[in-house]
Design a protein around this nucleic acid. Structure first.
Lengths: 338, 338
DNA sequence: TAGAGTTACGCAACCGGTTGCATAGCGAAG
DNA sequence: CTTCGCTATGCAACCGGTTGCGTAACTCTA
């Protein structure tokens, strides 16, 4: 029962059960190939000895590791844990294990992580990758890659269609009388930022309102806080922020400057990860983090089982979730001053 | 260059370089064993062919996987991503990859994850495990286990010594005139909750103040929100919450009931993960999430390299971080009513 | 220049599984 | 009772590395 490494191996089970190693292997992986009594006997012996197949050895010989890598741009963004949970829920059922890598918005780190994972996973899910397209394609040549929140021709990807969510958000605001609306932008290198901006621009045009662009550059609480001055002096009455974290910072900044939300200013976030944790509770555009993760996993399985299928572009819809940070546009006359 | 699996193998490099596979292997892992020119030549050929060693195969033959499992109780708690980043920072340098498993407060899930990881990792870090001691010890027999925020004799563990942080917190409150202080408890099954309560109890006794125990049971925003009534009717003037998330809920609840913080009520959180994101910014007891993760990894390495060393109990200290949710105790006379 | 010691490398076994192929043993058909 | 075909199992190669051991070639000493 004890070899030098401590764990029970297939050979020991085979000897104890009086069969060949291949029979033990088949009892676990292809029971229909062998007699039911044999399977039963082998499994009983294995159970008694506390045997379970070594996933490493199995992966080496089959070429299927039943692991996958999930590389994310920023672990501290609460969107990410939710997405991870979505991936894991699906992965769990399929018996997969997940490696996590935090690229920390840094392409070099991202690449290092990827190459460290590549030989022990069946595929990689890249969330909001900051790698340039060529590098992504290089990696995609080494194994299945699923992109999340990044749109690259030829690769399966799960994306959010922002038209509905941002459309609803803008119509909601214009319905409340807002005519000049700010979009507070996130990371320039992020696909999400580009398309969110596009969605808001289109919605604002359609509504015949006016858009003011205020790039924060980063999606962090402090970036939001630091944008407050610009927002206040932008002559807008409402803003849509790149994401909830940024919005949270803006909310804090507005409060600090004595601007009441939503009486004097309306604010909408995106990703819907804060629920009612802010005060007032943040109205937000939901992007379904868990569903996103689950969809990415399903695309991965599809890719693995049918590598030659046409790479699918999977779209999730977005919706406005109304809470308490939006209200009627204030009268223009009494301008807000610091 | 291409076998059926697409990746370049050591054999192909060996043939191309005109040496044995073992020489290629040594060029990568034991260059001092072979002539510098040979190493150089082999590495050049490998580089040109785009070869990199297969970690699976290496792990199988050496018994060292250079992977580790990190199983956490609740991914959505912002403390966890920080801790993960701490582990990863260290793991990265050492060339390790990290599997993540979210047990979701469920011992059965936790166990399933563990057994799925066990054959492909060198060790496991268990964060606030909800498994009963026997099961943990069973697993510890299969490979190195490091515990975080769980105190089990015989296993290396990283724990936080709360005496200083909670001592400072309580002295801070009593210094402000608070005499009756509430502790809003977290998950009953959590070691952290037990010792935090113990620390606060001792500090309150020492200070000659009075402690009121209000168990919330869970550490979530809503659990905090729901505790507000009890807090308001508890005749206390200040509370220390099990963690920041719970405190955030309480803060929201107090606000909703029109109780001004800190003018009418003082509140302190724990873990210091929210920074100044709340309003008012939450005073908190820091428990150094990233350092905790880093320390866990270091203990793991120690465990792997010297399995017979005495299991170390690594303590991190805690400190009070003053922000804006604490103030002088209000006059008792005008009681706060809903 | 022969013998001893050292160095750099090759050979082959091994890690723990999986799987294509060969075959023994069986029941059915002729 | 032979022949055929099928089924359950064993044999052995293989996945892609690592490593103990053996040895040819070289350096050093006498």
């Amino acid at each position: 029962m004890d070899n030098k490494r401590g764990r029970v191996t297939i050979r020991e089970v085979a000897e104890a059960a009086g069969v060949d190693r291949s029979t033990v292997s088949r009892a676990f992986t292809r029971p229909q190939m062998i007699r039911p009594e044999t399977t039963e006997h082998v499994l009983a012996v294995a159970e008694r000895m506390g045997y379970s197949p070594n996933r490493l050895a199995r992966a080496l010989s089959t070429g299927r590791a039943a692991n996958l890598a999930l590389v994310v741009h920023d672990l501290t963004n609460p969107f990410i844990p939710r997405l991870i949970m979505g991936v894991q829920r699906e992965a769990d059922r399929a018996g997969y294990c997940i490696f996590i890598g935090n690229a920390d918005e840094n392409p070099r780190d991202e690449e290092r992580l990827l190459s460290r994972f590549v030989s022990q996973v069946e595929g990689t899910i890249l969330v909001a990758s900051r790698l340039d397209s060529d590098r992504v394609e290089d990696f995609a040549r080494m194994g299945p890659v699923i992109l999340v929140n990044r749109d690259l021709e030829g690769l399966p990807r799960v994306l959010v269609d922002y038209t509905r969510g941002f459309g609803e958000a803008v119509r909601h605001l214009t319905g409340l009388g807002h005519r000049r609306i700010a979009y507070v932008g996130g990371p320039e290198s992020s696909w999400s930022n580009t398309v969110r901006l596009e969605a808001v621009r289109e919605a604002v045009n359609t509504a015949g309102a006016e858009l003011v662009l205020l790039p924060a550059g980063k999606a962090s609480f402090h970036a939001g806080l630091n944008m407050t001055d610009e927002i206040v002096s932008s002559d807008t009455t409402a803003a849509i922020a790149f994401d909830d974290i940024l919005a949270q910072g803006i909310l804090a900044g507005l409060h600090a400057r004595g601007v009441e939300v939503p009486r004097q200013y309306s604010l909408i976030g995106c990703d819907d990860i804060l629920g009612d944790m802010t005060h007032p509770a943040l109205t937000s555009i939901t992007t379904r983090a868990e569903e996103t993760g689950a969809a990415a996993f399903r695309l991965m399985v599809e890719r693995i089982t049918a590598p030659d299928s046409v790479p699918e572009r999977h779209f999730l819809t977005s919706d406005l979730v109304l809470r308490s940070t939006t209200g009627p546009a204030p009268d223009k006359s009494p301008r807000i001053v610091s």
